[in-house]
Structures are given as structure tokens and as C-alpha cells.
Design a protein around this nucleic acid. Structure first.
Length: 65
DNA sequence: ATAATTTG
DNA sequence: CAAATTAT
């Protein structure tokens, strides 16, 4: 069973949009981890200025396939 | 270097 | 097709 990403999608994060820190919810989130190693949860944010920003939302505890 | 994913 | 994202 993969990691549940919905809690990450519902929470807001401070992202740097054009030098301004805005609290946004990620459009999408996924696990970024090499095989057999720990990794991070990446969130994809869309700023009002049209820029796209990726930020780490958290880290994966242990390798889960 | 490696992983997934989207945008420029 | 390359950049960017972060921790191992």
C-alpha cells in the first residue's frame, strides 16, 4: 500500500511565489525516492503569477514500495 | 547520483 | 528534452 498523499494535498504550505510567501495547497503531490532508500514528498504548486513551484512537503519514513 | 512529475 | 524539487 502506497503512502496516503491526501493529507498533504489538503494542507497549506508556505511557498515562495515571485519573492512572496503565500500559503497554498499543492495541485499534486508524489513520493520522490530512489529504490530502496528514503525520500521526500514533493508538492507541485501553482502561483497566482502563473509560475509553478515544487517544494518538499515532508519526508518518507521508510522505503515503501 | 538517484527517484517522479510537470512545465518551459 | 532539461530543469527543478530534497534527503540519502
Amino acid at each position: 500500500m502506497p503512502i496516503d498523499l491526501t493529507p498533504y494535498l489538503e494542507r497549506e504550505y508556505e511557498v515562495d511565489c515571485d519573492g512572496q510567501i503565500l500559503k497554498l495547497k499543492p495541485v499534486k503531490a508524489w513520493v520522490l525516492a530512489p529504490k530502496g532508500r528514503k525520500g521526500v514528498i514533493i508538492g507541485l504548486f501553482k502561483c497566482p503569477n502563473g509560475k509553478t513551484v515544487r517544494k518538499a512537503l515532508g519526508k518518507t519514513e521508510q522505503p515503501v514500495e
